[in-house]
């Protein structure tokens, strides 16, 4: 399968390993990712807190670039917030056709126009639905036996626009984890909020969520994520949270394509596991056996 790949800003910085491992794992599965040329910021959660039209236009600019590439293929987006923002444009245009004229009036200064098309999909949707778990199992070179994985979906990969799984109690990662030879850690926290950007603006509130998530993951070897924001909140504050709650809550936090890549026989270097802030010796030892 062919996809238009939109990495988004975080994947050039704090989530570089998500970018590299997504490309490596998708290549190993036989998919072709064509990076969107001259892509720019989707607006994140900031644009819609400043200007409605700007939030729509920033995302629409990338869809216009995608249309111009003229490729048979959906957008594939690993970042949940980017994915939501790009999907939101099509949803809003459907409800308010006048919006398309406004978008194009603004995009004309960039020499671009948007026709209202492009299917936008999250990486999770693609790996859970375009790839058959049995086909993945057949490609596994190194079974992740004895590794217990807590699947963490977060919020915006599924809400409000995700229709590929139950947005309250998602399960689409489970067949995938099992196909890799790993076990699923049973927990009810998969779709709970990590606190997102509150970690920067209202830190104690976000720390509460991170603490509860890490505590519920006890017994698992790692949590896998599909969002750069979830990832950094879960991996970046473990020492602080452990101290505040008076219990050891350190656990490995991996991006889903990193876990997949390990089973598909890619090296730690190819998956940039050296960039993760939480990759424990105990998991490393389990992977070596």
């Amino acid at each position: 399968m062919k996809y238009i790949y939109y990495p988004g800003c975080s994947l050039e910085g704090t989530a570089l390993e998500y970018n590299v491992s997504t490309q490596a794992a998708m290549k190993a599965l036989g998919s072709e990712l064509m990076e969107l040329e001259d892509w720019t910021c989707c607006g994140a959660s900031a644009a819609q807190s400043e200007s409605y039209l700007l939030s729509i236009v920033l995302a629409a600019r990338n869809l216009a670039l995608g249309e111009r590439m003229d490729i048979e293929g959906d957008f594939l987006i690993p970042c949940s917030a980017c994915c939501l923002n790009l999907a939101r444009v099509g949803e809003h245009v459907k409800q308010d056709p006048e919006l398309l004229n406004k978008i194009n009036e603004v995009l004309s200064v960039e020499g671009l126009s948007y026709k209202g098309g492009m299917k936008v999909r999250h990486l999770l949707d693609v790996v859970a639905n375009d790839v058959d778990p049995e086909a993945i199992e057949a490609q596994v070179k190194k079974k992740l036996s004895g590794v217990r994985v807590a699947p963490y979906y977060g919020c915006q990969a599924l809400r409000p626009y995700g229709t590929y799984d139950d947005p309250e109690q998602p399960t689409c990662m489970e067949p995938l984890i099992k196909a890799l030879g790993a076990e699923v850690h049973p927990w009810a926290m998969g779709a709970k909020c990590c606190g997102a950007a509150l970690m920067s603006t209202k830190k104690p509130v976000a720390m509460e969520h991170v603490g509860e998530l890490l505590a519920a993951a006890k017994g698992a070897d790692c949590i896998v994520t599909v969002c750069p924001m979830c990832q950094i909140n879960l991996e970046g504050y473990q020492a602080e949270v452990s101290k505040a709650r008076g219990e050891a809550l350190d656990i490995s936090i991996l991006y889903l394509p990193q876990l997949m890549g390990l089973a598909l026989g890619l090296s730690e270097k190819e998956l940039k596991l050296n960039l993760n802030l939480a990759f424990t010796d105990s998991l490393r030892a389990k992977l070596k056996t």
Binding site: C9, G13, A46, S49, E50, A197
Partner: peptide
């Protein structure tokens, strides 16, 4: 508001966010 405002200044300047 300044958190979001600073973010948007960065986008306006570079097109992408430098964290």
């Amino acid at each position: 508001t300044r958190f979001y405002g600073s973010f948007m200044h960065t986008v306006r300047r570079y097109g992408r966010v430098k964290e």
